[in-house]
Each structure stands twice: as structure tokens, then as C-alpha cells.
């Protein structure tokens, strides 16, 4: 009952969630694209004394190399934002395509696709990423986005497929068939819109995972050392023992930035979902 009353609590609340999410993401987008021009110091500038505490001159102090952490954080926003959004987008597109196809068509198409998915799921993703990374000509931003985007869609494809399986049993699919719609039309025009909640739910986690995967790859030392991201800042803070200096200003802000960024997505996703549900009535089928 609680759930019902919550969803009936009015569209205004949901809009607030969406708006808050959007505001957070807009803030990061601004930081990512305008920030570098406003950043107080050039990227990878090593001209300052190391381990300075936060001050007016260095809002978040300096790191072990004498780089201004605040400036690095702004440059890092650009990288992490792009990785999150683009790798997330690649993942979503592939995940939806594969999941939808495998769920809609039966027999061998489905079997073959899911066989590949299950096979790839067997190998640890991190190991696959390392192997793929060693294939690419260089590990710049593009490669990182590709590596993460191309290897993260497996779980998403699975969940989209199972949802599609249940959707295609529903009456509206049969009705569309009777009207004479082609398979492609049914998939895109009829089923896809109904998958929206599950896609939205996945999108949130996929974006978060992309940002985290980039951090993980940096931590393992695979990536472009010249590029700055929230992950590389954290990885450096670890390998240079920031905790020995009690340099919280180096460790905490990037962690908070990632968390806030992902929280923006969660808010946006949940807000949108709830609106969607409110529109469609109590009919909700997401997992």
C-alpha cells in the first residue's frame, strides 16, 4: 500500500527528482566542458610545492607532484564525464540491440546470441579489458571508452532479453502482428517503448560501472598516463600513499565527485521511472 500511495503522491515530487538529477548532471557537464577553460592552472602542471594543504591559492591543496588537485579534478571531470556518457551509450546500444533481438527471435538466433554472451561472461571482464587494451595502438581516451563500452553490455543484454521474452507474450504484440507490422517495426515501435523502465534502470548502473571501470583500469596502470580522470587521481593518490600525509583533500574529493555524478544518474533514472509508472498507472514490470 505504501508503494501505491507513494506513486500517487503527485507528479511534482517526481519532477523534483528528475530536476535534481538533471541539475547535477548539468553541473558536471558544465564543469567538463567549460571548466578546463576556467581552471586555475594548466593540466599536469607540476610547478608547485608538493603536499600543500588546501588554501585560497589551492582550493584542494596539491598532490605529491605539486599539482593543484582542484585543477586536476576539473580536468578529470572532462574525462570521466565522457567515459561515463559515451561508454554508457555504447553499452546501452549494444545491450538493447542484442537483448531485444535475442528475446524477440526464438530458436537459433536467440540461442547463438545468448551462447556468445554466456561465453564472454565466463572470462573475468577485467582480464578481457587488459587483453583488449594491449591490442589497441594506444590507450587514449577513445580506446578506454571503446574497451569499456564494448565489454560491459553482457549483463544488460541478459536482462533486456528476459524482459523482451515476457513482453512478446503480451497481447499488444499479437495485435500488432494481426495489423501486419513487420518484425522490426514491432520490436522498435511496440516492444522497445515498453522496455523503457528496464533500460533506464540499466543505464544508471552501466554509466556508474563505466566510470568505475575507468578508475579500475587506471588503478591497475592501464591507460594514458597523460590523461587525467577521477580514477587516475585516486589511483595516483593510492600509489603515492596520500594517506600517510593525511592528504584527505587528494583522496576524498574525487571519490565524492564520482559518487555525486552517479547519484545524479540515479535521481534522473528513478524520477523518470516513477513518472513513467504514474503515467502508465500501476502497471509496472521492472526488475
Amino acid at each position: 500500500m505504501k508503494a501505491k500511495s507513494a506513486s500517487a503522491a503527485g507528479a511534482s515530487g517526481h519532477n523534483a527528482k528528475q530536476l535534481a538529477g538533471l541539475a547535477i548532471l548539468a553541473f558536471f557537464a558544465a564543469a567538463a566542458f567549460i571548466g578546463p577553460r576556467l581552471a586555475p592552472y594548466p593540466k599536469n602542471d607540476i610547478d608547485f610545492e608538493a603536499w600543500l594543504k588546501p588554501s585560497m591559492k589551492h582550493l584542494l591543496g596539491t598532490d605529491s607532484y605539486g599539482q593543484d588537485v582542484f585543477a586536476q579534478l576539473i580536468y578529470g571531470t572532462h574525462t570521466s564525464f565522457l567515459v561515463g556518457i559515451l561508454a554508457g551509450a555504447i553499452t546501452t546500444v549494444i545491450g538493447v540491440l542484442v537483448g531485444l533481438t535475442a528475446g524477440f527471435y526464438r530458436k537459433w538466433v536467440s540461442d547463438a546470441l545468448m551462447f556468445v554472451v554466456d561465453l564472454l561472461l565466463i572470462i573475468p571482464v577485467m582480464a578481457l579489458m587488459i587483453i583488449l587494451a594491449s591490442f589497441l595502438p594506444s590507450m587514449g581516451l577513445t580506446s578506454i571508452i571503446l574497451v569499456i563500452g564494448l565489454l560491459s553490455w553482457l549483463y544488460m543484454a541478459r536482462s533486456i532479453r528476459s524482459q523482451t521474452l515476457s513482453e512478446r507474450q503480451r497481447g499488444y504484440v499479437e495485435a500488432a502482428r494481426v495489423v501486419g507490422m513487420s518484425n522490426a517495426e514491432i520490436m522498435i515501435k511496440e516492444i522497445l517503448p515498453n522496455l523503457f523502465p528496464i533500460i533506464a534502470a540499466n543505464l544508471v548502473s552501466v554509466t556508474t560501472q563505466a566510470v568505475l571501470a575507468e578508475a579500475g583500469l587506471s588503478f591497475l596502470g592501464i591507460g594514458d598516463p597523460r590523461s587525467v580522470s577521477w580514477g587516475t587521481i585516486l589511483a595516483l593518490a593510492h600509489s603515492n600513499n596520500a594517506i600517510m600525509y593525511d592528504a584527505w583533500w587528494w583522496i576524498v574529493p574525487p571519490g565524492l565527485a564520482i559518487a555525486l555524478f552517479c547519484f545524479g544518474f540515479v535521481l534522473l533514472g528513478n524520477g523518470t521511472l516513477e513518472r513513467y509508472r504514474a503515467k502508465r498507472g500501476a502497471q509496472q514490470h521492472f526488475s
Binding site: 585516486l234 594517506i243 559518487a259
Partner: peptide
């Protein structure tokens, strides 16, 4: 059982935060 309660909210909030920071950050902390 009590969606929207302070327990629900704070448990979700804290776990979400931990979920969205890199694992090694949690370990280091």
C-alpha cells in the same frame, strides 16, 4: 516494508554512495 522511511532512505543513500566509489577507495579508507 517501509519504503520512504528514514531507515530505507539512509540505507539506500549510504549503500549507493559506496556502490559508486571505486572499490579500491573503500579498501584504502
Amino acid at each position: 516494508l517501509k519504503p520512504g522511511s528514514w531507515f530505507d532512505h539512509s540505507a539506500l543513500g549510504v549503500s549507493f554512495f559506496i556502490n559508486s566509489v571505486p572499490y579500491f577507495w573503500v579498501g584504502i579508507m
